[in-house]
Design a protein around this nucleic acid. Structure first.
Lengths: 390, 390
DNA sequence: CTGATTTGTTTATTGGTTGAATTATTTGAG
DNA sequence: CTCAAATAATTCAACCAATAAACAAATCAG
């Protein structure tokens, strides 16, 4: 009967787990925290915490800072914080009209950010990847000049990515079955869908929701689904194809072959056409100026999005929906129609309304999430990092 | 930055984990398995496995059986199986027109099954629960006469249940804010939604899918969502309200206040009305006899279900959809229209079609899942059981 | 009957946490 | 100014659980 068999646990796994526990306790604390407080919070003994912290400090994951001034008697505590000059994450993104790379340190602070505009569709995948590789190498060099060590890299791509990091199809880039391979020489690069990584970027903010769905409005519409604090990728890694949720069975034909998909109502192309403008900035300007075509186009798109949100919330019971991509900047005009439609259609909206918010990092979300996924890997498994540097 | 802090791991957690690992390895094996094979499969040493097995045998979770005849040299292996007379799970169900209880042993075998017909809506919750309590007590007594020990109980209810086991609302029973409390005296009873527990029953079958959605067609339509081998309940425990996924924004008004919910197309009431019959059995009979009204009603319901399935699969990328409740017996007529509509609307259907199957345990699914949830708790945490019996 | 082979147990060792005692560093009271 | 109280951090013996390797048990093959 049932149950994944899993793997055996030995003593070293205990240490690995507790190292992560201590590290994350420090990461979750806003102020520098003492060993004794870590012991209190985690339930480990001070002796154990001391031993673990020693490892983390020599491994350049934690650093000791000046004791925080404290009232009352007693030996002052030595503060612990995430090392500002330890390992860092490199996040890359390639999209229709730009490529970008950034470096984020352990504490989640953006340290470097490089963006190059340019239509990536004009070049073949190999050329585009080579240019991105050079950009990423520059970002890495800048970071290492600061004393940081880039511990890993991730790349956000607007398309379906297989588990082994091959871009199966990225329609708007014109890519098909592209293996990203060794973008950065020695450093392995994880490749993932843009919406998935953008969703992860929200987990890097203070006190993120445990369950939410990130809806990314670009040319297509994608979603990153976070359940129990972890990204849910689906059986084959193709979850989040929210752009093809049926809105109206008899609606306009979609390029996917079906009719009435969300994309036909709230996709960039449909909305811009309805508003009679050519770009998202023009649309926002027109809406801000009170243009009726723009406003009614956004209201219609919001209604369709609200219907899709209702399907998602009725199914998954997430409390929060994060809107990203071009939706982030258009949220002022989308919020009301989305909330109205979702309020009507979500069964439990009466006692608990759906929370709508814009992506914290706006247009940088995917790139930040990519870098953040590296950091998250370090925080979740510091033992692997410690082993790597002998 | 982020990450749930978790709890410390000590050596005893290692033992708890490895006890579960050994127990589940035996459970996953179809034939009796030797200590040495368990060691090979799990990666633990034979010495460790021996020690763990000793604990599990004295704790009545495993029993030694005759060595299986084997070819070749060597000392014959002692077989290990799940104890047929160890702890067992009690599953209960209360629904519109019956109440039921069953006992399932560690190996997942149904040992006793009691069903009482009768309209539960006519009695107040207290009376109905008392009758169910008597039924459950009888099932328990039968099991204990066989030498089984009922280790826990779960109750399936057709409604929303809060995390602390209070039935918030069960519209078809006419219940509202009913605390189930001590149904069985000393034995605590977990209460959960009928579709959730029915979904869990599929996990008790041989080689279940890791991710799937169980759609239960009763008066309402509910779903149990299993992701990564575990039930996903949602932030507030209200996931799976698939009956109110929007199918057509301008469709018929639903009792929830919105328009065009799935329930208005594929709910029992709508389908029976369209077919001009009064019960599910009549509908199946009419369809089997080639009745055109019945067949077209089922085709229409299937189309709507297929649209909802497309929304679910596009969002979650599950490969398998299990149909339960009255849909299980109607699947012969629903399969084709569901598959057709989903095939058109699921983005990845071309390379990987949606698998549709009927609930393994048919009408007993919820009750079996309830009992199975107790067994699963034992297999996932045998250390707790061992501690409980000194 | 002997050697090969496989299962299962015994024993010493190792890694990691615990708890108690100890050392270190400060505040505050007399 | 000195000493007690308080808090932080480290040291050390004890303990728990897994490992590795040797050993005992049971069977088969020749």
């Amino acid at each position: 009967m049932m149950s994944a068999t899993g793997s055996p646990v030995r003593q070293s796994s205990v240490r690995a787990h507790n190292l992560a526990l201590v590290l994350q306790t420090v990461a979750n604390s806003t102020d520098p925290i003492s060993r004794a407080s870590v012991a209190g919070v985690t339930g480990l003994t001070r002796a154990t915490v001391s031993a673990l912290v020693d490892d983390l400090v020599t491994g350049a994951l934690l650093t000791e800072v000046e004791p925080a001034p404290r009232s009352g008697a007693g030996r002052p505590a030595v503060g612990l914080t995430l090392a500002p000059d330890g390992p860092a994450g490199l996040g890359c993104e390639i999209n229709v009209d730009y490529r970008a790379a950034c470096v984020v340190d352990l504490a989640g602070t953006l340290r470097h950010r490089l963006v190059e505009a340019g239509d990536q569709r004009l070049t073949d995948p190999g050329t585009a990847l080579a240019a991105l590789g050079r950009l990423a190498a520059r970002a890495r060099a800048l970071a290492e000049a600061d004393g940081l060590t880039v511990a890993g890299a991730a790349l956000a791509v607007p398309g379906l990515v297989t588990a082994d990091g091959v871009v199966r199809i990225a329609p708007n880039l014109g890519w098909q079955d592209v293996a990203v391979g060794d973008l950065l020489g020695d450093l392995p690069v994880a490749v993932d869908n843009e919406a998935n990584l953008a969703a992860l970027s929200e987990l890097g903010t203070a006190d993120p929701p445990r369950d939410f769905v990130y809806i990314s409005g670009e040319i297509g519409i994608g979603a990153g689904i976070v359940l129990d604090g972890a990204l849910y990728r689906g059986t084959r890694g193709w979850s989040g194809e929210i752009g093809h949720i049926p809105i109206n069975p008899d609606g306009p034909a979609c390029r996917c072959g079906a009719r009435g998909c969300l994309e036909q109502y709230a996709g960039q192309e449909a909305v811009l056409r309805a508003a009679g403008v050519t770009g998202v900035e023009d649309l926002a300007r027109a809406a801000a100026g009170g243009g009726t075509a723009a406003l009614s186009a956004l209201t219609a798109a919001g209604g369709a999005l609200g219907t899709a949100v209702a399907a998602v919330v009725n199914l998954l019971d997430v409390k929060t929906i994060v809107l990203g991509g071009s939706y982030a900047s258009l949220l002022p005009w989308l919020r009301e129609p989305i909330a109205a439609e979702a309020g009507r259609r979500v069964l439990t909206a009466a006692w608990s309304p759906v929370l709508l918010r814009a992506a914290t990092f706006g247009p940088d979300a995917a790139m930040r999430g990519a870098a953040g996924s590296v950091i998250r890997g370090l925080l979740d498994n510091p033992a692997a990092w410690l082993a790597r540097r002998q």
